[in-house]
Amino acid sequence: MTERPNPDDALRDWLRATWQLGPDEHLHVGVVGQSTAGARRRNLVLEITGGPRPGRYVATVLPTADIAILSMVDEATIRMLAREHGVPVPEVIGVSVDESVLGGQFFISEFIAGETIPRRLLRLVREHDIGPRIVGQLGEAFARLHAVDPALAPAAIGAPSAPVGAALDAVSTVIDNLLQPEPAFSYALRWLREHRPTEPPQRRIVHADVRTGNIIVDHTGLRSILDWETAKIGDPMEDLAWVCTRMWRFGEDHFTVGGLGTVEQLRDAYVAAGGIWDEQRFHWWRVLVTMRWGTGLAGQAAMHLDGRFSSVVMAASGRRVAELAYDALTLIDVG
């Protein structure tokens, strides 16, 4: 058995083949940093010298294909599609399904400098007073994404024919199988059923996880939207609701949208860029995604208890259920 070559050499050889470089053409690839911020994914920061695209890049590696929500090829396709339509996404310059190069499928995208870590990001935003600008840029980015013809999306992407019904069924199933009855969840579920909107008039490509923590920001404002593995065809209002959930404010609760700015700023920018805002639907999705996260926390506690994933962090999720139930009921209260 031969040792797997180090990532520098493996990537250099892969790029040489991809770019069809001649034997005399110089190419050097150095791994200058790494992060595992994306939990399951590994990000290698690369410095490429020589070849047609010298510069700094990121190789995003999915360790095993079987846990992918979306294949790396499909995710790269969605990223390129969003970018072509004016959504700020790092440019993808290569995709590999060959797992032997880096120990998993990967794509390479341009490195965007800036802050992603939520508390540091919010400090930077306060220092430069750019929260409202970023919220405006997010509203515009959502409008552009939601304007893309969903027929252009890869066929393998999740595309429930009835996104409202599918989301409600998923939450309902978890509540039916809770370890013990939680009347606050039952109350919120009843409200969701009674106030269920019609299915969206237009199903669109949604990112489904845009939030503080999945964006890159610098002193000029929003630079990029990251982590497109959750992308699917759905109700555009789901995207706008998710970015408003309380856990993405990291304590800056006076700014509903990710601790950055107000719903009015988000709505104005979305509408100005051509998005169709539906207030009632938006409110319903806010309660739905809050409940989805709450039932997810209950699920994590169950995974700890039945041994599927024993960890003090998963166990602690059970004691966060009250936060999400409280958020859901207070949202219903003002609705």
Partner: peptide
């Protein structure tokens, strides 16, 4: 709690 959850689950 079980009784209240059942009432709420009933349409």
């Amino acid at each position: 709690r079980t009784e209240l959850a059942a009432i709420l689950a009933d349409p």
